[in-house]
C-alpha cells in the first residue's frame, strides 16, 4: 500500500504492469527528492532490472521505497524482496553476462553499477532481498546515517 507521504511505498511486483508502477514511483520519488535527470534515469533503470528479477526469477514479491537522510544528504532506498528459489552462487549471478534464463545477464551487475550502495541477501530456498540506495549528491560516508 502506498502511504500518504508519497515517497514511501510498498508496491507489489506480480505482473509486467506492476513493473510500470515501480518505475513510475521511483522516478517520481527521485525527482521529488531533487535527483538530476541522469541520476533519476540510473536509479529507475536499476529498479527496473531488480524488479524484473523479483518477478521473473523470484516468482514475484515487492518493492519498498523509502527516503533516507545521511549527514544531511538526501537519498532513496529501494528494497526488492521475494520468497523465490534464492541464489546459490552470488558471485556467478553478479557476473556480467551470466543468466540462468534467456536474459542478457546484465541486470544484477548493471544495477550495482547504477546505484551508490548495493546489497544482496539470498540463500537457496529462502528467497532474495536486494537493497540499493542512491543519494542526491555525492554519497556521504556510511556511518553518518541517522
Amino acid at each position: 500500500m502506498q502511504t500518504a507521504g508519497g515517497l514511501s511505498a510498498c508496491l507489489p511486483i506480480t505482473s509486467d504492469l506492476d513493473l510500470v508502477w515501480v518505475r513510475q514511483h521511483v522516478r517520481q520519488a527521485a525527482a521529488q527528492l531533487g535527483f538530476g535527470l541522469v541520476a533519476q534515469t540510473k536509479l529507475v533503470t536499476a529498479a527496473s532490472e531488480l524488479a524484473r528479477n523479483t518477478l521473473v526469477h523470484g516468482g514475484g514479491g515487492q518493492m519498498e521505497c523509502a527516503p533516507v537522510n545521511r549527514g544531511g544528504v538526501r537519498g532513496l532506498r529501494l528494497t526488492f524482496s521475494d520468497e523465490g528459489p534464492g541464489i546459490a552462487d552470488l558471485d556467478q549471478a553478479l557476473r556480467d553476462g551470466y543468466t540462468s534464463a534467456e536474459g542478457l545477464g546484465m541486470g544484477l551487475g548493471g544495477a550495482r553499477r547504477l546505484v551508490h550502495e548495493f546489497d544482496i541477501d539470498s540463500s537457496p530456498g529462502r528467497g532474495t532481498t536486494v537493497t540499493v540506495a542512491s543519494w542526491v549528491s555525492a554519497p556521504p560516508r556510511p556511518r553518518e546515517e541517522r
Partner: peptide, 13 residues
C-alpha cells in the same frame, strides 16, 4: 537521449 545513453553505458550493455 543523453541520460539514457549514459545509463546504458553504466549498465554495461
Amino acid at each position: 537521449r543523453p541520460a539514457i545513453a549514459q545509463t546504458i553505458v553504466h549498465l554495461g550493455i
